[in-house]
Structures are given as structure tokens and as C-alpha cells.
């Protein structure tokens, strides 16, 4: 029951985050919202596991947390340098 209440809160937050991801004027707003959606997915996963009394699948949550970070940093690195490679490649290649 209490997990259901928390799940509803997370669902509301997810909806609001999706609204910002769709509206967000800059790409940074969308990225921030996407990051929050990722965290919301982890929380939803954990809470749902507890609600159905099978919380063994939390390992997936660890993967999500790491992937969330990787996705965010990849986009940010692309923004900063225009590529994902090393800084040395950038210097050599005007492309």
C-alpha cells in the first residue's frame, strides 16, 4: 500500500519530467529531464519490486544508474567538443 503511494508519486514526477523533455527550449533542458526520467525509472523499478514482494531484481537498477550517467555524459561531451573521440583527434581533423 505504501509502495503504491510512492509509485504514484514517481509516476506523477515522470509525467512532469516528460512534459519538460517535450517542451524544453534548449537541449540542456531536455537532457536534464531525460536524466530525471532515468532516475525515475530506477525508483519505479525498485518500488515495483518491493510492491510485488520480489525485490531481487534490483541489480537491473544498478545497470540503469550507470547507463543513465553514460548517456548524459556522452551527450554533454558531444556538446562540448562536437565529437566523442579524444581531444587529439579533434585537433587533427577539421571535419
Amino acid at each position: 500500500m505504501m509502495f503504491a503511494a510512492a509509485i504514484i508519486a514517481v509516476l506523477i514526477a515522470l509525467t512532469l519530467a516528460v512534459a519538460r523533455a517535450l517542451a524544453g527550449p534548449t537541449a540542456f533542458d531536455r537532457l536534464l529531464a531525460a536524466n530525471k526520467i532515468g532516475v525515475g525509472a530506477i525508483m519505479l523499478l525498485a518500488l515495483f519490486g518491493f510492491m510485488t514482494e520480489r525485490p531481487e531484481f534490483l541489480d537491473v537498477g544498478i545497470t540503469y544508474a550507470l547507463l543513465n550517467m553514460i548517456g548524459t555524459l556522452a551527450v554533454l561531451k558531444f556538446f562540448r567538443y562536437g565529437a566523442l573521440g579524444h581531444a587529439q583527434d579533434l585537433d587533427r581533423d577539421p571535419g
Binding site: A9, V10, I12, A13, L14, T15, L16, A17, A19, R20, A23, L32, A33, K36, G40, M43
Partner: peptide, 10 residues
């Protein structure tokens, strides 16, 4: 607090 953060985001 989770919902508050989401409201603030908007």
C-alpha cells in the same frame, strides 16, 4: 520531494 523536484523542473 520527488514530485516537488518535478514541479520545479517545469
Amino acid at each position: 520531494f520527488y514530485v516537488v523536484g518535478a514541479i520545479g523542473l517545469n
